[in-house]
Amino acid sequence: MNRPRPRSSADPSAGPDGSAILKEGGRRAERERAKRARSRRGQAVAFGSSLLILGGLAFLILTSSGWPEVRSQFFSVEVFRESFPGILSAFWLDVKMFLAIEAVVLVLGLLIAVVRSSVNPALFPIRILAALYCDIFRGIPVILLIYLFGFGIPTLELEGVPGDPLILGCTALALAYSAYVAEVYRAGIASVNQTQTDSALAVGMTRIQALRYVVLPQAIRRVRPPLLNDFISLQKDVALVAIVGVIEAFRQAQIDTARDFNFTPLIAAALLYLLVTIPMARLLDYISARDDVVRGAAR
């Protein structure tokens, strides 16, 4: 693209001896050089200020009088080494809970959203129930629900209902998250223009086919970012089942903390949660950015 040209005429100090054609090329080279210089300067400033602020912060923390205390209480290498394997193996339970609950939530949430979005008069009573469900389960603190399920339901000694607090706690979480996710799906369904349904009916689809093949694929694509956002919350909220006695990573860390009277195990558990939530957050950013690009190209 750039024509190679003698260095001297690109140099603004070369004087007015450049011809008209060369002059235009000279302006371009000049501008590009200025742009590059600006960007180099920007990078240098960003690097310098980062070094100054982060370095300063680190210096302040590390030299403060309380730091040795903080380090031994929160960041003790020995305690970390000792407790980490136990917390890690307990963390697998968090991962399993998350995967199982997520699978249930994706299906149940969609089902509720579809019922709430339907216009079929035969579904009216179920629609009312679905609306009630969303209001109730979204409106109660999740921790209360887990407590109520995990401790309350076993006292009923109901036939065929599991008494395992792990299963009951996960059920409470799944019900609460299904209510949130149903609302996300519902917003997605509402965002697909009615003309798409008209068009699907006009080509001879049934209402159910129109929903299945035309409305839902578009709706779900649009709500992927908020769905992922809810799943990031769920990834850490599984720790809440600890209150009904399930020994997962947080509870294990709590036990270790109480034994050694040192908070490093909690930091270890926190790191593990971050290890799964941060990649998910980056995935969310990536998908959102890609969707923006696709949408931008469509315009």
Partner: peptide, 25 residues
């Protein structure tokens, strides 16, 4: 039926747009 604003299905290819009605019915 052909609509003023085309109303093609944006998530399907041209071929899928044209065939889905006949296939699903």
């Amino acid at each position: 039926f052909v609509f003023q604003a085309f109303n093609l299905f944006p998530h399907m290819t041209v071929l899928e747009n044209v065939t889905i009605g006949a296939i699903k019915s």
